[in-house]
Amino acid sequence: MLGLRDVTVRYGDTPAVDQVSLDLAPGHVLAVLGPSGCGKSTLLRAVAGLEPLSGGSISWAGADLAGVPTHKRGFALMFQDGQLFAHLTVARNVAYALRLRRTPSARVAARVRELLALVGLSGYGDRLPGTLSGGERQRVALARALAVEPRLILLDEPLSALDATLRERLAGDLREILQKAGTTALLVTHDHEEAFALADRLAVMRSGRLVQDGAIDEVWRRPVDEETALFLGYARVLREDAARRVLAAAGLPGAPAVALRRSALVVDASGTLRAAVESARVTPEQVRLLVRADGIGVLDAVAPLGTRVSPGDEVTVRTDATRLSVLPVAAHP
C-alpha cells in the first residue's frame, strides 16, 4: 500500500506541497480534490517520481521509494490529455510497456485485444492517435496504463478534458474498469463530480496542505470547514443566529455554523419556516427557488416540478436534515 509521510515539494521558496500525509490501501481509489494551483498535480507527480521531494517520504508496502526512478516504481501515470505517442498506432501504444518487457509477440497481441475490449475500443488497433476523439484517446491511455497491471495507477484529471456527456459516460466505464481490474488508483481533480464518480476515498487539498481525508461519503457529509464545504458542492454556509434558526427548524440542536445543500429546504405545507419567494427557475428535475426567510436571509430551496410559485409569494419550507452539515466551531475563518 501507498504511504505518504510529511511529503513536501518546494519550487524555490514556495512549497507547492506542504507536509502531506496520506495512506491508500490496495484496491481503493483515492481522489485528491482541490482547486487548481493547490499542489495536487505536484503531489501526483511526486508519487510518480517525476518531482524530487524537499522533505518527507513516500513508501510502497513499507519500502521507501526515495531514489527509485519513475520507471522502476511500477506506477502507471495517465495524463489529463492521455499523452499517447503520436507516432505509434493504438495497438503499439497499448503494447508499449509489454514490449519494453520483451513479452512474446503472440502474448502481446492477445493482451492488446483484451485491453481494447475492456475499454470498448475493439478493432481500433491500427488507428493512429491523431484520428481518435478525445474520449477514445483517454480510453487508449487507460488501456496502455493497465497493460502491465501496475501496482498503482495515477490519474491526472482523467475526465476534465472531455465534454459533459462524454465525461459522465466515461466516468461510469472508468470506475467499472478499475473495479474489474482490482487496481489501486490515486486520482487528482478539481471537480467534485469527477471525484464522486470514481473514488471511494477522498482527500481535500488547499494551498499545498491536506485539509481533510476519509471515506468519500464521510467527507461529503462532514466537511471540516466552510471552504471545504463550498468546494464539495454545498451552496451556502450560515452562521450564528441564522444557523440556529435553520437547525431548530430541522429539529437539531443549535450550532455556530451549518452548510446547506441547494436542496436542504423544500417547499412543503407541513414546513415550519415561512419565507418569501425571490425568484423561481424550472430545471428538468425540480423547481429551484431563492427565498428570503425572516431573521435568516436569502436561501436556496427546491419545490417539486409543477409547483406554481412566483416572486413575492409566501411559502412554507421544510428542512431536510440529511442535506445539511453542521461545521466544527474551529472552522470560523
Binding site: T70, H71, A76, L77, Y96, L100
Partner: peptide
C-alpha cells in the same frame, strides 16, 4: 518537445535510454 510523453513512457516502465529510443528520438 513536450516532456510529458517521455514521462508517460517512464511511468510505463521505460528506462531513460528506452525513453530516448522509443519516444524522444522518433519525435
Amino acid at each position: 518537445l513536450d516532456p510529458r510523453p517521455g514521462q508517460a513512457a517512464a511511468a510505463l516502465g521505460a528506462s531513460p535510454w528506452q525513453v530516448l529510443r522509443t519516444v524522444t528520438l522518433p519525435s
